[in-house]
Computed example of a mutant assay.
Amino acid sequence: MPEEACVERLLYGGALSMTFPLRLQDLSNVRQVPDHQEAFADPSRDESLIIELLDLKHDVADEASAVWFLEDLAKEQDAEGGMLIEQSGVLEAPRLCYRSMPAVVTSAVGQMAISKGRQGIEAQNIVRVYLANLRLKEVGTDVLIVAYEPVVINPLSESASSVGAGVVAPAEQSGYMPMAEVFKLSVSTFKVHDWNLFNA
């Protein structure tokens, strides 16, 4: 199987970077993306990768943070029947240090029914959601890296026209890196080049 081309992408004006496949295109070229987010998508597979910078949630425990954010995301998207598939323990990211304080990383994987854009409940797709929370406590920031991978596309979803309705074929069959791998690669290559982004 051909290796999929992955490149280091500069985020937030070059202050951060991560490596992931070229097929994920910058959504800010297509639509408005909020300033605290960077969003990339492969429209042919309806897969997306979102990076979000949020104020640190001091009242959420480190070991529970990824699951907390995953549940929060489900509420925000009016997702139905969310289920947690797995969660990691707390890992330190020694390469991601500010003033010798390493970031704390947790991750969670869930599956939920989500409607696209402004579509209603009758057009929900079954989507696997991979979420990592990188807690940069010294600069008061929770970084979220979220990957969305559709498992089943509803015939009424607007995604059906580009991806096709029904069970989505695994990425490997098309010679693509599966979103679980894209997610791991993105998280493991996350770098901060300029801490001033966080007003540090």
Rank of each mutant, 00 (worst) to 15 (best):
T106G: 12
D26S: 13
Q173L: 12
D42T: 06
Q119K: 00
P102S: 06
T19F: 00
F183A: 04
L22G: 03
L96Y: 03
K137E: 14
E52K: 13
P21K: 08
D78G: 14
L49W: 01
Y98I: 08
H36E: 12
A113M: 12
Y148R: 11
E4C: 06
V109R: 14
A132V: 02
L70T: 07
M83D: 11
P102F: 13
Q25D: 05
V182L: 09
V146H: 00
R9W: 05
S88G: 14
P102K: 06
I153M: 00
G82A: 11
I51S: 00
E158R: 06
I126F: 01
I50H: 06
N125T: 03
S161I: 02
S28D: 14
L73W: 11
A39T: 02
S174I: 00
S159Q: 00
M101E: 14
L197R: 10
M112W: 13
P170F: 03
A79V: 02
R23T: 12
V143N: 04
T141G: 03
S17A: 13
V139E: 04
H58E: 11
N29D: 11
V33I: 15
S157V: 03
T106R: 11
V192G: 07
A41C: 09
K191T: 10
I153Q: 05
A5C: 01
Y98Q: 08
W68N: 10
Y148V: 01
S44Q: 13
P34A: 15
W195A: 11
P34R: 12
L96P: 06
D35F: 07
Y12T: 04
L185T: 15
Q37E: 12
G120Q: 09
M179V: 15
M179K: 03
P2S: 11
M101I: 12
R45G: 05
V127I: 15
H58L: 13
W195C: 05
G164K: 00
A66S: 12
S174Q: 09
P43A: 08
F183Y: 09
L185H: 08
A74V: 02
L56V: 07
E52G: 10
Y12C: 08
N29F: 12
D26T: 05
S28M: 07
I114N: 02
E38F: 07
V187T: 04
G117D: 07
E122Q: 12
G89A: 13
P178Q: 03
L197Q: 08
L16M: 13
L84K: 10
A147I: 08
A103P: 07
R95V: 03
V152L: 08
W68H: 14
V109G: 09
L134S: 01
A64N: 07
V146I: 15
P155E: 01
A64L: 09
E122H: 04
L24A: 02
G140T: 01
E92Y: 09
N154W: 08
A200R: 07
G89Y: 00
E38L: 02
L134V: 15
A160N: 01
L11R: 06
P178R: 03
L53C: 13
A200C: 14
A15K: 06
L54F: 03
P170N: 11
V90N: 04
E138R: 15
I51N: 02
L144F: 03
V187Q: 05
F198Q: 04
Q173Y: 05
G81T: 03
V168A: 00
T106F: 12
D46A: 15
Q111A: 12
E172R: 04
V129K: 05
L24I: 02
L91A: 07
R31M: 15
E92A: 05
A123L: 00
E8D: 10
